[in-house]
Design a protein around this nucleic acid. Structure first.
Lengths: 138, 138
DNA sequence: TTAATATACCTAACATGATTATGTATAGGA
DNA sequence: TCCTATACATAATCATGTTAGGTATATTAA
């Protein structure tokens, strides 16, 4: 009986853990829409070259698991950035597995500056909107 | 001739001004996608009740004209929030013109706290991603 | 007086950017 | 042997927004 109760307890904890994880991932709210390209470009600016899977892991690590880039969003985004001449691709084979390394082109590097500037403006504006500075009322 | 040149000069300046304005508004980039509901709810939390047009003007003012909410986005968003029980509506007639005043319901007030918390998380995560703290390398 | 601008609402067609669900394939551990 | 991790990809669908129209009243400038 004790064993069953322990098992149930473990299962219950697992349920809770999964549930909390889901809630956490629910935070992948609509807010992140539109920021994926900027994230990719900034990471490439920092790290020189990265492959898709690496990007998802890096983002997960940096945000303590709060932001999980879905592959269905990532790969099309990478292809689009490549088509736009923002990224260059280079295929390598590591451990018999394919890797597509992406890096910023010259144009991409310039464009990254703009995107980051837009992001700063966006964040500044959002902070003005939700964190209004105390009104000067006399 | 002088007059023509002056006229041309003025027109030219106007062209530039318009162009700069367009560029400015181009900053209405994809980043803002997903943040409209949060903006609306926060403004209503602060101001008690507001009508649609008032919201567009307020946002424009707060962001120094950098963010212009389009009516095609605003009105459907208000209707959706009302349908979800986040907002209550109350119609008034001022100066022979209709105004639909929106205010947060009780549920809406609770929900606003969550949205703002999500926004803070989002901003924090984005800052971690693009503004990485200096690496501790020895 | 007439034209333009501002106020105030609305919606439909289209575009964009994501999620969800699926598929392929290799490597390693329980 | 099966599950998980690594590593790529795409198609169907959904959410959200832009663009472009529409109605109507009030005010201001030419």
């Amino acid at each position: 009986m004790i064993m069953y109760r322990n098992l149930m307890y473990i299962c219950f904890r697992k349920e809770i853990a999964l549930h909390l994880l889901m809630i956490k991932n629910m935070k992948n709210s609509q807010l992140y829409k539109g920021s994926l390209n900027t994230i990719i470009m900034k990471l490439l600016e920092e790290n020189g070259k990265m492959y898709g899977y690496e990007i998802t892991q890096k983002v997960k690590a940096i945000t303590s698991g709060e932001l999980n880039i879905t592959e269905g969003a990532l790969y099309p985004a990478l292809h689009k950035l490549e088509a736009e001449g923002i990224l260059d691709v280079e295929i390598e084979k590591v451990d018999n597995r394919m890797r597509k390394y992406y890096k910023l082109t010259e144009k991409g590097t310039t464009e990254t500056v703009n995107r980051l500037s837009e992001l700063e403006d966006f964040i500044r504006n959002m902070q003005s909107l939700v964190n209004p500075s105390p009104k000067l009322e006399f």
